[in-house]
């Protein structure tokens, strides 16, 4: 009984160390197995990307940085793999300073990884500028940029992150306005979905895919229900389910290791909640008032 009562007073630093141990085990083992269950919104995302016409591009809007890289980067990499496999051209734009660099590095990493396989299969290799482009960091009035790129893409974007005019890149040369955009993907930790809905995707009937951090995902379901969103990847769990769909179900990836670590963490937290409440109930029954949270 005393043991259960004392569980309410565990030093938080011990809990932190235990969390680190629980999360580390799957990251060391790195299981390849991906979840077999795929949520409907993830399936819709896959179908939306599949339905993009060959002469259209997908616009990836990056508004995440180093802080949420663990959630948003796997989403973006899974989507890039799908688009590379489909030969769908895409353009990455960033509203985040750090996100601009990270998303470019991720694109190059996925390109190199896919090229290894293509090389083995004797297929033509992917190239930056030909199969995809990165237009770098954008700042200013978001509504004006979002609205403007739908009307005159070249005028608003002008050049890629390396300073090359978009008219000189094969991936972007023919993009004139919203008619050339097959889908928009909002990879975000700050919530720019409202701007895309208001100024581009809903008025111009362009599918919008939302890839938020898990914290933000709950508020997006009404938009999925109304059809304003054509799909969603919910944090890293959405990313790992998408990897299942793009044929990586048996490949050990960061996302698959993260999903296992996440499941372990959830079991650990549920266990702590149960033990803490057991301690509380026992303390109340025995009249012991020593329980409570310890902050020090």
């Amino acid at each position: 009984m005393r043991f259960l009562i004392r569980l309410q007073n565990i030093d938080r630093r011990i809990l932190y160390v235990l969390v680190a141990i629980v999360l580390s085990v799957p990251l060391i083992i790195r299981p390849a197995k991906h979840p077999e269950t795929v949520f409907p919104e993830v399936r819709k995302t896959y179908d939306t990307i599949d339905a993009v016409k060959p002469d259209n591009i997908v616009l990836l809007s990056v508004s995440w940085g180093a802080g949420t890289q663990a959630e948003n980067d796997p989403q973006m990499q899974a989507l890039m793999r799908h688009m590379f496999a489909n030969n769908t051209k895409f353009v990455v734009m960033s509203w985040s300073l750090v996100g601009s660099e990270l998303s470019y590095q991720s694109g190059m990493h996925v390109q190199a990884d896919v090229n290894k396989q293509r090389s083995r299969e004797g297929k033509p290799l992917l190239e930056y500028g030909k199969d995809w482009a990165h237009v770098g960091y954008k700042t200013g009035s978001i509504s004006a940029i979002v609205s403007g790129l739908g009307e005159n893409f070249q005028q608003v974007m002008k050049q890629d992150r390396n300073g090359t005019p978009l008219t000189e890149l094969a991936a972007t040369r023919n993009i004139k306005n919203y008619r050339d955009i097959g889908a928009v993907v909002d990879l975000t930790s700050v919530g720019l979905m409202g701007y895309w809905i208001a100024y581009l995707t809903t008025p111009k009937h362009i599918p919008l895919i939302y890839c938020p951090t898990a914290v933000m995902s709950a508020t997006a379901y009404p938009y999925l229900d109304s059809g304003q969103l054509s799909g969603m990847l919910n944090g890293v769990m959405g990313a790992v389910q998408y990897e299942t769909l793009v044929g990586q179900a048996d490949v050990a990836t960061d996302a698959s290791a993260s999903s296992w670590a996440l499941s372990a963490a959830h079991i650990y937290i549920i266990l702590l909640i149960v033990l803490g409440n057991l301690g509380y109930l026992v303390a109340r029954k025995t009249g012991d008032r020593s329980g409570g949270s310890k902050l020090g």
């Binding site: 999360l23 990251l27 914290v215 670590a261 937290i269």
Partner: peptide, 19 residues
Amino acid sequence: ATVMGRMTLFIGRLNFLIN
């Protein structure tokens, strides 16, 4: 979902350190 998100951020750093 918030707990899941916060854990994922920590996983990201641990993954960097471990792998």
